[in-house]
Design a protein around this nucleic acid. Structure first.
Lengths: 343, 343
DNA sequence: TTGAAAGCGATACCAA
DNA sequence: TTGGTATCGCTTTCAA
């Protein structure tokens, strides 16, 4: 009976002993460090296979001054398809570098985020990717003290904690507001969701209102539901909005999923889109690719946003020069759920 | 200048020294273990705050025989909305227990899964939640040797490695096949995706074929695309299927997203649903909640599946008795994208 | 080319 | 109520 450690796992010393070398030599072989004979290498590797040795990376990080391959990734929620895409982009890209995402779903609250940051930092991650630019004071302090790279994504942040990858949401909203008012729309509505934190969707709404008001129009009703920004809230939000406000010619939604819900509500009620009412969304979700009536929206490559975030993180970790801010950009999609009313 | 460790992070001994106690005492205070005076507690906590001490959990795991709070979670991809929901259910539930998901997107390949398992095991996770019941031989061996709880989700597995939470996909397909043939459909088509591994979707197809053939019908064409199971592949897959096979009366899709894509293709081509052609999906995605024509589908609570997986994992970790198999169940949704043809 | 010893940050165990 | 010492699995450093 060979001595086993408490976890009943095979350790490096066991491999070394079985191979008849010191654990330092075994360590060198496993790290491919060089400085040993081919014969030694073979002996060690044979025992690695025979014993099914798996290194304990916790001990490695702990012993050396290298960092872990964890990247903490905070995401508000996955019910919103755009965030799922962002996460997919992040994790895939990190994976190509041999890094792993440690997930945190913050439910859009700074308090959840703070708690998660405290926990995840205790696991010595190599870096953090956080959705959103707003953090609690304590979270901010911990982030500063952590001494690891931090990428804030989603909202572009011109003065980030460390690095920022995102888009200008105000501009998205502004461009849509200008586009719609140029088409002749004057009485507009908005349906979205709200949380306890000022967020990107609010920025879009702000930009939208600014453009609409600047063009002599008005946002007659803004509905911010306490719900997830997906199909059904778009549906019932539209019902509420149309019941509460008269004369709304076009509705701007927080995203395409809500807009699609709204579209279904309107057509179900016999309203013709875009003749009776206009519909505009944001995000250009995959579902748009199969709709015969292209949704008026704003295209953003969520996957690319995630990939880029992972890239700047890896760039920083490998001491390459990386930009502090990366603007992913967006593109307005005219679509056919709105029409020219100025004619 | 106080001595700092290499990471420039505050360690327990620094807190202890600053508070004028031994690190054992400081350790006890921080773990709320009792066996110290209130005065001591106050001194220590004051220094924790002053120095901004964050524990290094790596060292804790390493020292004691407690395990980490990592749960490795493998998911095929997040472009498929159902998996995003499963992950959301898992991570939220784990979070309530103070555990974190370490994500692995395997892209539906056993090889990716094996590599990810090797890496994640080296971080000493408390347990693993894996999507799918098929693993490479080496992966299986590592899982057996790891000595940690493993929950296989998605396909119900009556003889799991350890524990299983899922549904019977064969039955889903079978029930749908029987339902459609009972309505009078005889010539059916299938559109889905395929990967290098036998998967749950294939099980559904098998069940479907079995029921259809048992009822004297036939699945005249099965299309398995090498793509992600989402809207657009459903759209173009339908085009391919209808071009390749004549007389298809109803198409069964891998999931609702693909079915929605197919529905859009059909209506776009002037085919009336369900008069000219029937459409059936699987999964009952959120988008179904806003469609005026309810999709004929199969309801599965993906969120609950994820939550349940996390629950049995936590049950095992806290030494509660847990069932080896949990069947989440499903419910056929008649919908209105198919019709009674036997009349 | 190889090995022995120290140490990473925490906890368990025993002694005071 | 406290503190000293050994220890976890590995790497760094220095010596042979």
């Amino acid at each position: 009976m060979d001595k086993q450690n408490k976890n009943n796992k095979v350790s490096l010393s066991q491999v070394a002993r079985a191979a008849g070398v010191s654990k330092m030599t075994a360590s060198r072989v496993l790290r491919d460090e060089g400085g040993y004979s081919e014969q030694t290498r073979i002996k060690v590797m044979a025992q690695v296979d025979a014993l099914g040795y798996l290194p304990n990376r916790l001990a490695t990080v702990f012993a050396g001054d290298q960092s872990s391959t964890f990247i903490g990734v905070s995401i508000p929620d996955l019910g919103n398809e755009v965030f799922a895409q962002v996460l997919e982009g992040i994790d895939r890209k990190l994976g190509t570098f041999g890094y792993q995402s440690v997930l945190g779903l913050t439910q859009h609250t700074l308090n959840e985020e703070e708690n998660w940051i405290r926990t995840v930092l205790s696991w010595q991650p190599a870096g953090l990717i956080l959705t959103g630019r707003y953090h609690s004071p304590r979270a901010t302090e911990m982030l500063r003290n952590a001494g690891i790279p931090v990428v804030e994504i989603w909202d572009l942040n011109s003065s980030p904690l460390d690095m920022s990858v995102g888009i200008n949401h105000f501009d998205c909203g502004f461009d849509m507001g200008r586009y719609l008012t140029n088409l002749g729309y004057r009485n507009l509505g908005y349906v979205g969701t709200s949380h306890d934190t000022a967020n990107a969707a609010t920025e879009r709404l702000n930009g939208f209102c600014k453009a609409v008001e600047g063009a002599g129009g008005q946002v007659v009703k803004q509905l911010c539901l306490h719900d997830t920004a997906t199909y059904y809230p778009g549906f019932y939000g539209t019902e509420q909005l149309l019941a509460a406000a008269r004369g709304v010619e076009c509705i701007y939604y927080q995203n395409d999923a809500m807009a699609f819900g709204g579209l279904q509500y309107c057509t179900g009620k016999g309203l013709k889109v875009p003749d009776d009412i206009g519909i505009a969304g944001w995000g250009d979700l995959p579902i748009a690719s199969v709709m015969k009536r292209r949704m008026t929206s704003c295209h953003v490559s969520h996957l690319k946003l995630g990939q880029k975030a992972a890239e700047v993180m890896m760039g920083r970790l490998t001491d390459e020069p990386v930009p502090a801010c990366v603007d992913i950009g967006f593109r307005l999609i005219p679509g056919s759920t709105v029409r020219d009313r100025s004619a």
